[in-house]
Amino acid sequence: MLIEVVTAGPGCSICQKAMKAVKQVAAEFPQIEIQELHVVDQFERLQELNIFSAGAILIDGKAEFATLPSLPKLRERVYELLHQ
């Protein structure tokens, strides 16, 4: 499973929180790979997915959260997707 976090840069507190949450969940599920998607570098792709805010989370290429979810919601969604 690939989880991508939309980030705006190192000074973005929402981005840092999103990465922290994803890393916490990834520590529980060894089959997770994490990547950052920088808004500037991935603008066209994010526009196609209707993602317009940093902190958004994509799972296996699909926009799952348009904004930063709570840790329990993220964990629950990852668990659901892994056990389908």
Score class of each variant (00 low, 15 high):
19 M>F: 03
19 M>P: 04
19 M>E: 11
19 M>V: 12
20 K>Y: 08
22 V>S: 05
22 V>L: 04
22 V>K: 02
22 V>Q: 04
23 K>S: 11
23 K>C: 06
23 K>W: 05
23 K>I: 08
23 K>E: 13
24 Q>R: 13
24 Q>F: 09
24 Q>M: 14
24 Q>G: 10
24 Q>V: 14
24 Q>H: 12
25 V>W: 02
26 A>M: 07
27 A>R: 10
27 A>Q: 12
27 A>M: 09
28 E>Y: 04
28 E>H: 10
28 E>M: 13
28 E>Q: 14
29 F>W: 09
30 P>Y: 00
30 P>N: 09
30 P>L: 00
30 P>W: 00
30 P>M: 00
31 Q>M: 13
31 Q>C: 14
31 Q>F: 06
32 I>C: 06
32 I>Y: 05
32 I>R: 01
33 E>Q: 14
33 E>M: 07
33 E>T: 15
33 E>V: 13
33 E>R: 13
34 I>L: 13
34 I>S: 07
34 I>N: 09
34 I>H: 10
35 Q>A: 15
35 Q>T: 13
35 Q>H: 14
36 E>L: 09
36 E>F: 04
36 E>G: 07
37 L>V: 06
38 H>Y: 04
38 H>E: 00
39 V>Q: 12
39 V>I: 15
39 V>H: 07
39 V>A: 13
39 V>W: 11
40 V>M: 04
40 V>W: 00
40 V>I: 07
41 D>H: 13
41 D>W: 06
41 D>E: 15
42 Q>M: 11
42 Q>K: 14
42 Q>N: 15
43 F>H: 05
43 F>N: 00
43 F>T: 00
43 F>K: 10
45 R>L: 08
45 R>A: 07
45 R>K: 12
45 R>Y: 05
46 L>G: 02
46 L>P: 01
47 Q>D: 15
47 Q>E: 15
47 Q>R: 15
47 Q>P: 08
48 E>A: 13
48 E>Q: 15
48 E>P: 03
49 L>Q: 11
49 L>E: 11
50 N>K: 12
50 N>T: 05
51 I>L: 07
51 I>D: 01
51 I>S: 03
51 I>Q: 03
52 F>L: 11
52 F>Q: 09
52 F>C: 04
52 F>A: 10
53 S>L: 14
54 A>L: 06
54 A>M: 09
54 A>G: 08
54 A>W: 01
55 G>S: 03
55 G>Q: 01
55 G>L: 02
56 A>T: 06
56 A>C: 08
57 I>E: 01
57 I>V: 04
58 L>H: 02
58 L>E: 03
58 L>N: 05
58 L>Q: 02
59 I>V: 15
59 I>R: 08
59 I>G: 06
60 D>G: 04
60 D>C: 06
60 D>L: 07
60 D>Y: 05
61 G>T: 12
61 G>W: 11
62 K>L: 14
62 K>V: 15
62 K>P: 08
64 E>G: 00
64 E>R: 08
64 E>N: 03
64 E>M: 09
64 E>L: 01
65 F>L: 06
65 F>G: 02
65 F>V: 00
66 A>E: 13
66 A>F: 15
67 T>N: 05
67 T>S: 07
67 T>Y: 10
67 T>R: 14
67 T>M: 09
67 T>V: 07
